[in-house]
Each structure stands twice: as structure tokens, then as C-alpha cells.
Design a protein around this nucleic acid. Structure first.
Lengths: 196, 196
DNA sequence: CGTGATACAGAACAAACGTTCTATACTGTG
DNA sequence: CACAGTATAGAACGTTTGTTCTGTATCACG
């Protein structure tokens, strides 16, 4: 058996350890995991695992679990027309965690439950959850959470020569041109809706 | 200031560290985090954090991040009207990972890119991504991915005395009453849209 | 058989890490 | 002021952890 495949077949074992314990194994634990008694062997394995992205390292060399929880990697399909792959033929290569996909700055991102139908023409329904990223400069056409005239609201953001205007995505409501101070608290970076 | 509140106000800082580094801080790092120079102080703090569930420990006493990967835990806010908490006052108590929120069976869930506007009145736009859960029995009103008359489609699912019908969420399209075999490949369990 | 590559055992080593002890500064209370 | 409680500094200590070195066993190849 080639060394490469030896490492490959060991990766799932490491992943299971991480899944079970919520942290990376130590070299000693790697020894136990693979029934070897040499920390040298474990050290070499660990290097492979780090190289493969299965494990990480602290600045001081300690082994750490990778940043993403690999349990929630989802397979991505091109479109409905492409049909479904069978479970047997699937690999986890083209996968993506939702967190990874939608959230670039976790520490600056919030989830916000949507009330009202002011953005319904943008496909944002009451009961949806929006991801709001703070500290980002809004661009024309972005959907923002703003505090205008001391009231919170979610609207399209536009800025032109005449100033800033906030447009709803619903003809029932009117465009707002903030008279006093406008505080854009965050930019809506994603929409999620839980069905079923 | 009481000791309790001292610990409380420090919890968010620890959480942010875990968020940023994907692992627990060491005692030395706790010292740096709170501008203290004593590992004794850090040790006492660490004990409090463990007690509060903010951190965990290995069997050998090393500090660890809590079992759930908090890397992508997002703060949840009630609604727009509630406003934004300041970073200082935030705790990570009411948080949720997107994966955790949307996906109950990762191994049976797929992501599918939406093409076309047949479900636009349901707030599902072209370019959105839907989460499809396989092996679930569709209920009336569920959105399903189905293979009807050898073509893939996404539609509302209804079943009544006259059989099954598949309705689009767009008046431009017609309701389908599958003549031949109907294969419901999966039920749409979520919708996500990446903006910005 | 000889050679080289690989995997492993075992030990020694240094750095990192958490615990514990002693001492000092600050607080509030009587 | 005396006293107690708490937070902190600083150092010593033992354990854990990853690295490195030496040596052995196995296997493929010529």
C-alpha cells in the first residue's frame, strides 16, 4: 500500500476524533488512534494531516482542529437540470459549509428576523432571517439596516448628488429621504429562510 | 464592581478570541487579553470561564473551546425594531450556527442553484440556493424537487383525492398534473441568498 | 544478496502549559 | 486604624506536548 493512501485512509479516523472530542488529538492520542507507540510516527502523521488541512496548528506548534466544522459540509449541485448524484458516487470535494458560504466576518455578522413586508419585492418575506454585516460601507443598491429619524428600518440604499435615499421593495411604502442623521448600522449580506 | 460582573464582562472577550482563532486561549493569552501579568490571575479566570461553560478542558487540564464549533455562531436579534446591541454588552448566549439552524440531516441535504423564476412568488429568485433534503415525505404545500415526465422541476407539492399536482409560484406557468411516474427527489428545506 | 526507501520504536530534549505558593496593593467595613 | 476579602504580581514547579535523533524491521527493486 502506498504511503499516500495510508494517510488518506487515516484521515476519517482523525475527523471522527475531532467530531467526538471537539478538538484535535495530541501526538499521544494519535498513537493510540492508530496503534503505534512512537511519537515520531505520530509527528510525521500529524504533519501530513496539517498539510491535508485535516488539522491545524497554533503558533506554538500545538495541533488544533481546523476552523470549520466538517460535519456540515454540503454537496453543491449545479442546477435542477443536472439531477442528483447517488450517495455512493459522491465525494466531499465540492462541498461548502453554509457558514463559510454566507459569512465572511463572523464577529461582525448578526442574524435578524424580518418583520413586515417592506422588502417583499426583493424576495425578503416576513419571517425570513437576514444576515447583517456591520462596519461595511454600503454601496448603491445594497440592502441596509438603518436608523433614520430615530427609527430602525430595512431598505435599499442609494446615494446620489441629492443625498441619500432609502427605497423599500414594496410599492405600498414610500422612499425615505432622511432629514436628520442617518446611521447605517449594517449591510444585509444574506437572506435565509427555513422551510418545512 | 462585583467579581461576578467582572467575569461577565470578560466573557465576550474570550468568545471573540475563540471566534477569531477557533480555539481556546492559553493562560498566557488570557493574560494578554486582559492586560494582566499573572498566570495565577489567568488561572482563576480560566476556572470561572470553564464554570460558565465558555471554555472547556481536556482530561489533562488544557483549556479547550466548548464542544460546538463557535467559529460561526451568530448572534440572533429579535427584530429590526430591537436595535443593535453594542459590542461591549454582547454575550454569545443566543447564538446559532447557520448549518445547525438550517440543516438537520447533513448527509441527506444538498445545495441546489435555482434557475428560472417559476417560484418567484414564493420569494425564491433565480440565483438563489435552495437546500434540498432527500428521503423526506412531502406534505401538502411543501416545495419539492421532482422528476416529472422525465424532466426536473421545482414546484409546490399538493396531494388530494384526484392525485398529485405540482403548482409553480408564478402565474406565467401552469399547474402540472403528472401523467406518468412522479419521482419526488427531495423536499426544499431552506432558501439562502448571498447578497453583496 | 545489496541497496534504498519507508514505517516504526524508543529515548532525550526543549518549549509550552497549568498549578500553586508567597507577597503586595486595593477595597470596604467596623 | 484594624481587619477581612479580593485582585494581582512574580516565581517555582511538574506535567504535557511536539521535535529530533538513533536504531531496527520490512519491503521493493535490481
Amino acid at each position: 500500500m502506498s504511503p499516500q493512501s495510508r494517510v488518506k485512509e487515516r484521515i476519517p479516523v482523525v475527523n471522527r476524533f475531532v467530531l467526538k472530542h471537539g478538538r484535535a488529538p495530541t501526538l499521544d492520542e494519535l498513537c493510540g488512534l492508530f496503534n503505534v507507540r512512537s511519537k515520531n510516527t505520530a509527528s510525521v502523521m500529524a504533519a501530513k494531516f496539517v498539510e491535508a488541512g485535516v488539522l491545524g496548528r497554533t503558533t506554538t506548534g500545538r495541533l488544533t482542529a481546523p476552523r470549520q466544522n466538517p460535519a456540515c459540509k454540503l454537496r453543491i449541485l449545479g442546477s435542477v437540470a443536472a439531477g442528483f448524484p447517488s450517495p455512493a458516487e459522491e465525494s466531499l470535494l465540492d462541498t461548502l459549509s453554509l457558514d463559510e458560504y454566507l459569512v465572511t466576518r463572523p464577529e461582525a455578522t448578526f442574524m435578524l428576523k424580518v418583520e413586515g413586508d417592506s422588502m417583499i419585492d426583493a424576495g425578503i418575506l416576513p419571517g425570513d432571517t437576514v444576515l447583517v454585516e456591520r462596519g461595511r460601507t454600503p454601496r448603491n443598491g445594497d440592502i441596509v439596516i438603518a436608523c433614520v429619524d430615530s427609527a430602525w428600518t430595512m431598505k435599499y440604499f442609494f446615494k446620489d448628488g441629492k443625498g441619500i435615499r432609502l427605497e423599500p421593495a414594496n410599492k405600498k411604502y414610500e422612499t425615505i429621504r432622511p432629514k436628520s442623521r442617518l446611521a447605517v448600522e449594517g449591510v444585509v449580506s444574506g437572506v435565509i429562510r427555513k422551510l418545512v
